[in-house]
Design a protein around this nucleic acid. Structure first.
Lengths: 343, 343
DNA sequence: TTGTACGCGTTATCAA
DNA sequence: TTGATAACGCGTACAA
């Protein structure tokens, strides 16, 4: 019989703490997770030994031995995108004093990558999952439904939640902006879009519906690309749009980056904003209100979505199902100088 | 003796695969990790069974049984900040076809939070670690040195690496921009800075050194805040700076967001750029070249830093120490219209 | 309130 | 090239 070889770096284990404190290992375990079930005396004693030895629980061993871990998996299509960065911030803030850990995954706007990450995350037995949007692949949906943990889909709402949902209607958002432009007297209202993920598509659908209602729709007014959105791209797309329709007098941009690019292109080409060109963006990043002229946009409660998503999950983990599984947080049009044309 | 209870969701285990394939569990394990050590026949057979059963290895069990996991921990001060977002992109791209996984941690510019995350990460026995900057707390430094895995400090270089380093001198960066402004004939050159993390501090030090050299330094030219950087904040800070020094004729902004805010403030207050106000930023985000007028900045190889950091780590994991533990990737001044004053 | 026995799924070690 | 056995560190079930 050989001595224990201690394959792991020789870090103290729960057994070391137990021996030193003169108690059973399970008591140490309990002192950590359910202090109220351990007597005051032992608790203090154990705490002292833990401190002395510098004991840190091994999360892997914990995960292996337990049915559920304390991690909540969060899948977003992008970390760079300010929109999701704010959602993530809301999520972290929503954690509060809970023991939950966040595991972040970046799907890069790919349904297949979402599937892959879902498998990776699910293999850790998370206590809850956050996924973005409502366009999961059938396989991903099955994985979510069979995951055995609460799930919340964020940023959008739709008729058929996997479990819970919190977001708003991008179709209505697109419609609202478009109506605003039309109401301001713009007639050749273009749509400029990048990336064109499902939410962008629905904003476009809202634009199209409203333009048709107003009898102003023309497919040549729509300029999109699947390239990632950026400020430089906004400049390019406006040039493309003007090449197709020189009489263009306003644009609804897919998002705020594009809108800022459009503004720069207008400055550079001496196109007056809002007189000769109305500009509206989407999401209302903080730069919109300080640009010159200030830019119209649609404010979306991204931070709140992250925060409330976690609240819903924490409640679900605790066993209480929400009365309302689908929450519409809405959005708010922010009319500014860039569409303030004298009518 | 009770039947195995199968606590974990009933997923197939390596033992199931082994039994079905008529081999030992360890052979399945090897077929997965070191295929060349398993005969062609068995390999195919095992692969078929894995496919049939839908077996997925449990990362926790793997981590528990192994000395090292395949994760590389990455600690950055912010995920929102475009600079670090690009570093992270470089890191992912640098992974290539390796089996390495990335575990991301956000320190929120806090040394204590960095310490905490370091403990969390280290408890997973990562195969390598990436940390940002060179200002770790003494405790964090000890943790890194005792972590038993390769470490690379990124974004900055300094005299005393924990292990490896890749970055550039922020002091020199600040100095270079300042010299550029002075060379263009600006005399009341202000410094505007937000957040003021260690790297910002060193850029400020570079500014100060150069201004003193030119005999132009005045503490009232410096306007900083610890608030997070943003475009709106750039507008505010310029107003503050002008209130202190109405004769201000140029500003070196801590970063590009502030520079863009400064530009908007100039537009709004009808201050001519670059004639009455020179503007320079730092990092050269893509918006800088398309703004109107285009904005001078300092291009920093963030993506490359991420990519090469991973290369260094992969080499170190494979056992080869770099000849050069500290790599200076430099930076490049990008002079544009915003500082193109006729001299 | 505390402890005992054992299983969680995998890999290291050593022998064949 | 393959396999048997013993860890890895912790939590669950049940007993005391």
């Amino acid at each position: 019989m050989k001595p224990r070889s201690r394959r792991g770096g020789g870090r103290p284990t729960i057994a070391d703490v137990a021996k030193r404190a003169g108690v059973g290992a399970i008591t140490v375990s309990r002192a950590l997770r359910e202090p109220q079930r351990v007597s005051e005396d032992l608790r203090r004693q154990i705490a002292a030994v833990i401190d002395e030895l510098g004991y840190v629980p091994d999360p892997n061993a914990r995960a292996l031995a337990s049915v559920r871990t304390d991690v909540i998996g969060v899948l977003v299509p992008s970390l760079t995108n300010n929109v999701f960065a704010e959602v993530v911030r809301g999520i972290y803030d929503g954690l509060g004093d809970s023991h939950l850990q966040v595991q972040l995954g970046n799907t890069h706007y790919s349904g297949l990558e979402e599937e892959r990450l879902l498998r990776v995350f699910l293999s850790q037995r998370p206590s809850a999952l956050v996924v973005s949007g409502i366009d999961q692949t059938p396989t991903a949906r099955k994985l979510l439904e069979g995951g055995g943990c609460p799930v919340v889909q964020i940023m959008e709402i739709g008729p058929d939640p996997v479990d819970m949902m919190i977001g708003f209607s991008h179709f209505e958002g697109g419609r609202t902006v478009t109506r605003h432009l039309v109401d301001r007297g713009y007639r050749k209202v273009g749509f400029i879009g990048a990336r064109m993920d499902p939410r962008s598509q629905r904003r476009l659908a809202g634009y199209r519906a409203e333009m048709k209602r107003a009898g102003l729709f023309d497919p040549r007014l729509v300029t999109t690309t699947t390239m990632p959105s950026s400020i430089p791209l906004g400049r390019e797309l406006l040039r493309d749009a003007l090449a197709k329709v020189p009489a263009l007098d306003a644009v609804f941009c897919n998002n705020d980056d594009l809108a800022l690019g459009v503004l720069f292109e207008c400055h550079c080409s001496a196109i007056e904003v809002p007189a000769k060109m109305g500009i509206a963006g989407f999401n209302d990043l903080d730069m919109m209100s300080v640009a010159f002229p200030s830019l119209t946009s649609v404010s979306t409660p991204r931070y709140e979505i992250g925060r409330r998503a976690v609240s819903m999950l924490r409640a679900a983990i605790a066993g209480s199902r929400p009365e309302q599984p689908v929450i519409d947080v809405g959005f708010a049009l922010k009319p500014r100088e860039s569409t303030a044309r004298k009518i």
